[in-house]
Amino acid sequence: MEITVNDQSREIPEAYSVQQLLSGLFPDTSTGIAVAINQSVLARSEWERHLLQPNDRITLIKATQGG
């Protein structure tokens, strides 16, 4: 199925969770990441349970260090 992540189309399998998506995109860490789906912020506690749907628009924001 097709979703959009930060304005880029991606194909993912059916029954794919937010946690699975993040593990694929950020294999080294999942800390410092905020997730919004269709403009609604999703709590970290929901990442494993929330299954993505066709045409979902996901916004990922990764915190960085610096000044």
Rank of each mutant, 00 (worst) to 15 (best):
I12F: 02
E2Q: 14
N38A: 08
S40V: 12
Q20S: 11
V41K: 10
G67R: 03
T31L: 08
V18K: 06
Q53W: 00
Q39P: 01
H50N: 15
L51M: 14
S17D: 00
L22N: 08
S17V: 00
K62P: 02
T31K: 09
I12N: 04
T29G: 07
E2Y: 10
Q8N: 09
E46T: 07
G67I: 07
Q20P: 01
G67T: 11
V5S: 04
I61F: 06
V41S: 09
L51W: 12
E11S: 13
I58R: 07
V35C: 06
F26L: 02
L52H: 07
T59M: 14
I58M: 14
Q20W: 04
S17G: 02
P54V: 07
Q53R: 14
L25A: 04
R10T: 00
E48P: 03
Q19S: 14
Q53F: 03
I61V: 15
N55K: 10
P54H: 09
E11K: 12
H50M: 07
V18F: 01
R44W: 04
R44S: 15
H50K: 10
D28C: 01
R44V: 15
Q53M: 12
Q19M: 08
S9N: 13
A15E: 10
Q39R: 13
V41E: 12
A34T: 13
S40C: 15
L60T: 08
L21T: 02
A63V: 05
A15I: 03
T4S: 08
Y16W: 05
I12A: 09
I61W: 04
T64M: 12
S17F: 00
L25S: 00
P27R: 05
E11C: 06
G24C: 09
A63Q: 03
Q8D: 10
A15N: 15
D56W: 02
D7C: 01
E46P: 01
T64D: 00
A43F: 04
L60A: 15
A15P: 00
T64W: 00
Y16Q: 07
V35E: 03
A63S: 13
Q65G: 09
S45G: 08
P54M: 02
I58L: 15
I3T: 02
I33M: 02
N6P: 06
